[in-house]
Design a protein around this nucleic acid. Sequence first.
DNA 1: TTGAACTCTATACCCAGGTATATGGTTCAA
DNA 2: TTGAACCATATACCTGGGTATAGAGTTCAA
Lengths: 148, 148
Amino acid sequence: MVQNTSMRIGELAARAEVNIQTLRFYEREGLLKSPVRTASGYRSYTDSDLERVRFIRLCQGLGFTLREIQQLLILHKSVAEYRGVIKMKPSAVREIVTMANERLELIDKKLTALSSMRAELMALVRALSDDSAGTCPVAASPANKSKK
Amino acid sequence: MVQNTSMRIGELAARAEVNIQTLRFYEREGLLKSPVRTASGYRSYTDSDLERVRFIRLCQGLGFTLREIQQLLILHKSVAEYRGVIKMKPSAVREIVTMANERLELIDKKLTALSSMRAELMALVRALSDDSAGTCPVAASPANKSKK
DNA sequence: TTGAACTCTATACCCAGGTATATGGTTCAA
DNA sequence: TTGAACCATATACCTGGGTATAGAGTTCAA
């Protein structure tokens, strides 16, 4: 039941919700490895490529540059290799741990900043909602969203 | 007593660690209000402008665009006004609560993504450190040259 | 078998977010 | 009172991250 789901660039672009040109751009920039090609030269992608593209977009939304994302992808790959119990040289392990710790620091900074921003907004909403409770029946609960 | 902490553009730029041109750019783009001018036309900034610029840079690092940051700044200002017990019209309150809730949703998405990224990196570091050394404590320090 | 839809490479272009430069006025310590 | 260090406006340019277009080959359902 291991379905060999391969797809061409158009499908990957549609599924990852990015432009086809963007995928070729990522390939040129080294964020995506050169995929295998069909006999006629068409790029052939797998689900793991889809995952990778989604990861890239996610990171971009968090303020990482493409260069930083390249580093994150190396770590991402290390996780996969570790899960696959691939033996690594101690020097490689050390390098990865160092990189991971650097990334962790950046991530923690972002988490801290976002949390305080969140707290501030929550306080604002709570205060304004309570305040106007009598006269103004608005969002009393946080994350009160219009239905879709 | 020394509350006359006004500064010119060069000092603000140095303190906020941004380029002078960037400050003028933010002003043109409506992220900074037009500051008070000296008799000779020099821009005169206060500490609250410094705070504002730092807030802008912080948000940029979190993946917000300048347009999103403009929205965040409006909310930021609302917090200040609320603290100052400035009375607002119910319609204004409603609008702000809606905006705040929208921002909260975005922030929560970023927080979730960052947290899972953090967990993944932590797991990697823990696993690699345990595995490869046995005697090597989790550390970013590459000074550890212990060959087993 | 054909034509609409897809893909290829190559090249040019676009937008956000700055950054640099030219030209001229202002400040202030020496 | 002068000159180094500021600041002003205006305009041009740059970088990152894409996006569009041209011209040619491929796929596949009808």
